[in-house]
Design a protein around this nucleic acid. Sequence first.
DNA 1: GCGACAG
DNA 2: ATCTTGTCGC
Length: 221
Amino acid sequence: MKINQRHEWSLSQDDAIAIQEQLNKEVITEDKLKDKIEFVAGVDMGFEEDNTVSRAAVAVLRYSDLEVLETSIAYRPTTFPYIPGFLSFREIPAVLDALEKLEMTPDIILCDGQGIAHPRRFGIASHLGVLLDMPTIGVAKSLLVGKHEPLSEEKGNWQPLIYQGETVGAALRTRTGVKPVYISSGHRISLETAIAIVLHCTPKYRLPETTRVADKLASDR
DNA sequence: GCGACAG
DNA sequence: ATCTTGTCGC
C-alpha cells in the first residue's frame, strides 16, 4: 500500500512531544470506517542485533474467517530508544516499511500498544492511524495509564479504563480466566466498535489472530 | 521529590 | 522487546 510521510523520525524527545500534541488534534474517536470490513491487519515488532535492528511484521487476514491473505516483513536500523509514552517513534518507521511492501490495503489495523490511552492521548495506534488516515485499534498487553474496576472472569466482559476522569479505553477479557487486554481507540473508531472487532479477531487465545500471525512469521526464521 | 512506566 | 527449562492445567 502507499504511504505518505508527514514528519521525520530522528527527533529529540521535546520534538516528539510537540508532534504528539499537534497530531492528537486530528484523532477521531467516532466510527469512520467501511460499513463492511473485509481485511484486518496486525503488526508485530521485534529487535535484533542488540536492539540496533528493528523488525516489523504485518499480517493481513480476511475479516470473515480470519484466513491469512498476505504478510510482509521489514528491517530497519533502530533510531529511537524505548521510552514509555514514546513507543511510536521507535516502532512506526519499520511498521511503515512493512505496510508499504503490502500489495493489499487493509481496512483496519490492530496495533500492539495503546491508542488514546496515553498521557497525551496519542499512543502508537493513534499515531499510525493519523499518519495513514485509516482506522486503527490499540490492543495492549499491559497498562500505560489509567485504572479500572475489577472485571469478571468470563470472556467478553470489560470495564472502562479511566484516566484523568475520562474513559480512554477498556480492560477487556478476551479469554475466560486469563489476564485482560487493554483496548483503546486508535483513530476513526469508537471504543464500542473497537471492542467488538477485537473480540471477533480473538476466537481462541488472549491476543487477536492478527498479531499472533504476525508474531509467528517473524519468529519462524 | 517520589513512583509509574505500552514494547 | 529479549534472555530461557521445566512445569502446571485445561
